[in-house]
Amino acid sequence: MNDLTITVVFIEDEAPIRRFLRTTLEHAGMQVFEAENGQRGLLAVASRKPDLVILDLGLPDMDGVEVIRQLRDWTALPILVLSARAQEAEKVAALDAGADDYLTKPFGVDECLARIRVLLRRHAGSSAKNEQVFVFGSVQVDLVQRQVSKNSQSIHLTPIEYRLLTTLIRHAGKVMTHRELLREVWGPNHSESSQYLRVYMGHLRQKLEDDPALPRHIQTETGVGYRLAP
């Protein structure tokens, strides 16, 4: 294994899932360190200095959200959370605590690897953000000129819509909770009025999506938030 090998710390108490994911990731050329509870997981992250942490929220010894908080005290490395369906509140709590994305069990190998790739790429890119033009589907966003076009046709966005779009672009591929978006777009004072967010999101979909009711890029994560899928 050379220095470029991606290392992952996987904190999960269920042995079958550990085995399945370990096999998957090692086949994808990553090195995996397993931890079966929160305390060992925190130790593993501190000692192994991994590129990514995959964390199951249901741990025997401590709350998964608490693990995220403790990690976020000292590291910005990407955290991918695993959770069961119908636990939207838990997902939101994890994301608000600093997790980067989540995967709902049961999930497939491809989906998991895609998320990991997005996170690693974003993490690598965030240190050197020099993209001028962001493209998704037929939409082009010129971040320097502050111009948006679709199929080479210029699209007019209101200031808030533009701010919302650039925020989503900044975190492209990552799910943003309502609270995160409100805070970044409106500032901390407007963190409760998520109806505004929904309306502006609707406007963005109307203006940028081919079929606003079946959006391909500006995706709604029901009960959690939004994600810009490039």
Partner: peptide, 24 residues
């Protein structure tokens, strides 16, 4: 979970959002 009592978390929102995510 519905049998053990539905606790709605109602919010004002557009219908298209939920249609989009359901279709996905």
């Amino acid at each position: 979970s519905l049998q053990s009592g539905v606790k709605l978390k109602r919010e004002w929102q557009l219908l298209e959002e939920v249609i989009g995510s359901a279709a996905r």
